[in-house]
Amino acid sequence: MHKQPSHTGFFVALLVLGSWAACIVSLMQWQVNFSNPLLYLFILLQMHLYTGLFITAHDAMHGTVSPSKILNNAVGYACTFLYAAFWFPYLNKQHHKHHRHVHTNDDPDYHHGNFIAWYFSFMRNYLSIWQIIIMAAAFNILKIWIPQQNLLLFWVTPSLLSTLQLFYFGTYLPHKGEHDNLHQSRSQKRNHILAFFSCYFFGYHYEHHDSPGTPWWRLWKTEPPISK
């Protein structure tokens, strides 16, 4: 008997998307008070949910959101656009190029340089003038109805912080330096709580390259690399 394909990934994706949407809609009308510690907690929460959007899109790039290609790609398009008007097919192409040519000159995510130079090279590879135009237009339209400081604090700032979170835990730490293994990557120490909050288990990066068909919410179950 053939095992029926699982739709769990689709419901996990809906949970991430729904959480992001519910929080950002609520925060757009929240009364900002810089002396209220909840303000900074909400910014960090939104940062984490923005990272979840991108990680969900990443799962779509590997076809693990849904066995239905239409649903899988629809989630990918939605998450990348909501994240920062990214174009899913381009990200998909570049990400698979990263997997095929990891840690080489043909790897779009790799850069020979320090953290700052690498980060700006990473962002330059993925940002386009059209994204900037779309996001600027959206900001100026939304501020007609939404307080500008709410847009800056809960829409702009968390998304920018999220790029740092994704880059640091999902690219820089796993791939910096030299590696004596097939996937040219390392993994963080096994601490599932830290791994989830840092980057949705993508600190277990060798495991992801070793099993790219494993969705983020199952990465913690994978076997860690054997230390030499």
Rank of each mutant, 00 (worst) to 15 (best):
P5Y: 11
P37N: 09
F42C: 07
T56G: 02
P67A: 11
A21P: 04
P37Q: 00
L49V: 01
N36K: 01
L17C: 12
W20G: 00
W30K: 03
G52V: 00
V32R: 05
A57E: 09
V65T: 14
T64D: 05
L41F: 15
F10L: 15
G9I: 03
H62M: 12
Y50S: 05
A74F: 06
V32K: 00
S66M: 07
L49Y: 01
G63N: 12
F10P: 00
W20M: 02
K69C: 13
W20R: 02
I55Y: 09
H48L: 12
A78K: 01
T56C: 12
L53E: 01
T80P: 09
H62V: 06
L45A: 13
G76C: 06
H48G: 04
S19I: 00
P5D: 11
N73Q: 10
N36R: 05
S66L: 04
L53C: 04
I70D: 12
H62S: 07
Q29R: 09
F34C: 10
L49S: 01
F11V: 07
L39Q: 06
V25M: 06
H48M: 10
L17N: 08
W30V: 07
I70N: 02
H7E: 11
Y40P: 08
S68D: 15
F10A: 13
T64G: 09
M47A: 12
Y77D: 14
N33I: 08
G18I: 03
A22D: 04
S68W: 13
I43F: 06
L38C: 07
A13C: 10
C79L: 04
Y83C: 02
L27N: 10
C23E: 13
Q46F: 06
P67H: 09
H48D: 08
N33P: 05
P67Q: 14
P67V: 08
Q29G: 00
